[in-house]
């Protein structure tokens, strides 16, 4: 098994971490720069920076904050939220991002993903897929867009295969049902996409216990494990998750 990466996710709104970070040493729990520093010090292998209310007007703010976060981050940083033009990717990279995640725009315009891969390289392009249970779908998971608001009628695994064909480098499926529940990742969709596409998959949504991380790395075949709440609320540190995984034979840095 390759190294499994732990990715704390900063959910951003108007330049602040939405959920707050309950680390005792932080002066300002919602300051993304302080949070990013703390996560890096705790052994984060990558960071995700997700602007959950991305709009054209707010994007400037996001890039200003992103640049401040980039300056303290010493590991790869993936940025998502409202990425829909090549210029958005250029701006994110110029602000210090190492990769972007594309969501709704990838569904609406797969040609945009092809151009993005051609321009910036597969390793810079991650496809974020919001999914929810729908037993009428072959994989029993349906793709949602617009921040999880709009059902598409598209099968999640079939869509992941289409994204593989565009040349995208990674897939980030997030389960609507599991996200924020702390009841565990959606292992079935994580594993199905990993096995079918052969691409590195980032498990996302639902981590609540140390066992959940282990299950996603083993049963879920995830190359990376993303979590927000458990890190924000201080349930675990990144170091604790890695110690636990290491103890159970999962290779971590």
């Amino acid at each position: 098994m390759d190294y499994v990466s732990i990715i704390p996710c900063l959910d951003m709104k108007d330049g602040r971490v939405v959920k707050g970070v309950h680390f005792v040493e932080l002066q300002d729990a919602a300051d993304p720069v302080a949070a990013a520093k703390a996560y890096c010090a705790s052994g984060a292998d990558e960071l995700a920076f997700l602007d959950i209310t991305a709009t054209v007007e707010k994007r400037r703010t996001m890039f200003d904050v992103l640049q401040k976060v980039s300056a303290v981050v010493t590991v790869p940083l993936t940025v998502g939220g409202g990425i829909r033009r090549l210029q958005d990717i250029d701006d994110a990279l110029a602000a210090g991002a190492s990769a972007v995640s594309i969501s709704s725009a990838a569904y609406r315009d797969p040609q945009f993903v092809r151009e993005a891969v051609k321009t910036f390289g597969a390793q810079r392009i991650c496809i974020a897929i919001d999914v929810d249970r729908n037993d009428a779908m072959p994989s029993k998971r349906e793709v949602y867009i617009d921040g999880g608001r709009t059902p598409t009628g598209k099968d999640a695994v079939a869509f992941a295969m289409e994204m593989k064909d565009t040349g995208a480098g990674r897939i980030l499926p997030t389960s609507k049902a599991c996200d924020g529940s702390c009841g565990g990742y959606d292992l079935a969709v994580t594993r199905a996409i990993a096995e079918k596409t052969g691409l590195p998959v980032i498990a996302s949504g639902g981590a609540g216990t140390l066992e959940h991380f282990y299950a996603a790395a083993t049963e879920g075949k995830a190359a990376a494990l993303l979590a927000a709440s458990v890190f924000h609320f201080g349930t675990f540190t990144v170091a604790q998750v890695k110690d636990y995984l290491r103890g159970r034979g999962v290779k971590v840095r």
Binding site: Q67, S70, A71, V72, L93, G96, S98
Partner: peptide, 13 residues
């Protein structure tokens, strides 16, 4: 050949 911000920021750091 690619954006160089992250390299510049690392040296700045």
């Amino acid at each position: 050949a690619g954006n160089l911000t992250s390299v510049r920021l690392a040296f700045e750091r």
